[in-house]
């Protein structure tokens, strides 16, 4: 039996640098991978679906505002943007995260695209980072499209004075991006946890569309404490640069019942979103590093 033996064989002498010398570093490879992954997204049906959602939302808002002309909303550009940008952006970010990110890692296993990538001389962190970046960019393209619709409406109602205070809108956009980063970390965590894309998409969609809302109501009504640790709750800060910061704890009497209404502070919002981003991204990467292509 030539070339094999019963006991362990000592390891061979390591090879000289050779081909490794020209392989790009991890960051370089992640950028290359994200470029091709983004190209795949932008040509895919899911991107068309996302665009359709953005266009539908923009069209509904445009028609509703044109028909009802709500005086509060049309009182100033910031009130206008605060009313239609903040909530809409958070909604679209959730959809973008799910549509682009839900199968980002799970799909590598389920669709077997991972067999093509992982045979290449790259680390798993490269694949994770490359795909993260591609999902982020595809989502930003979608959000920017929505911003264009919002700005077009602003110009229609306020003329060029719609751009009189761009700093506030930019600050709100930056917070929306932070929310996107945090949400994607969360989506990638579940995408790494499951080898089936559908499970990852369903879990994230159910949690954000239903689960967190129920949880938030239950926590507030039963414990009378602020649900500061819920990502959906702190996403409320996206509108603050435009609408102003509401009272942190407000007591509102409605239909004879005194209710406590919590609103996140800037510090809570930014801190919790950063926390979600770092913890879930690291958690997702930890899972992906250990997942096998069986």
């Amino acid at each position: 039996m030539s070339g094999s033996s019963a006991g362990p064989i000592p390891a061979s002498t390591p090879a000289p640098d050779g081909a490794i010398g020209r392989v790009p570093d991890t960051v370089g490879q992640a950028l290359i991978l994200s470029r091709y992954q983004l190209r795949d997204y932008l040509r895919s049906r899911r991107f068309l679906l996302m665009i359709a959602i953005v266009v539908a939302l923009g069209a509904i808002l445009t028609l509703v505002i044109a028909h009802f002309r709500p005086s509060g909303l049309l009182s100033s550009p910031n009130n206008f943007y605060g009313g239609i940008w903040g909530g809409g952006a958070a909604f679209l970010i959730l959809f973008a995260g799910i549509i682009f990110g839900g199968d980002a890692i799970a799909g590598e296993f389920q669709n077997k695209t991972g067999y093509f990538l992982m045979g290449l001389p790259l680390r798993r962190v490269t694949v994770y980072a490359g795909k993260y970046l591609a999902v982020l960019l595809a989502s930003i393209v979608s959000i920017l499209l929505y911003l264009v619709v919002v700005l077009a409406n602003g110009v229609a109602y306020f003329g060029w004075s719609a751009f009189s205070d761009p700093g506030q809108l930019l600050a709100s956009f930056a917070l929306a991006l932070l929310y996107l980063l945090a949400l994607m970390g969360f989506v990638f965590l579940f995408s790494s946890l499951f080898k089936t894309s559908l499970y990852a998409v369903l879990v994230v969609a159910v949690l954000f569309l239903i689960g967190f809302s129920i949880l938030q109501s239950v926590i507030v009504s039963l414990t009378a404490t602020e649900p500061w640790y819920l990502l959906s709750y702190v996403s409320g800060v996206i509108s603050y640069p435009l609408t102003g910061v509401p009272e942190h704890v407000a007591h509102v009497r409605a239909a004879g019942v005194l209710a406590t209404v919590y609103s996140p502070t800037y510090a809570e919002g930014i801190g919790v979103m950063l926390g979600y981003f770092f913890l879930t991204t690291i958690g997702g990467l930890f899972l992906f590093e250990r997942e096998e292509f069986t």
Binding site: G18, D40, S44, N111, K112, T113, G119
Partner: peptide
């Protein structure tokens, strides 16, 4: 060191899929 080890290697394991839009 998978990156270094696989830098000299071309492989085809099972039937990989390529991103469909590429």
């Amino acid at each position: 060191d998978r990156k270094r080890a696989l830098s000299v290697c071309g492989d085809l394991i099972e039937t990989p899929e390529i991103y469909p839009s590429l």
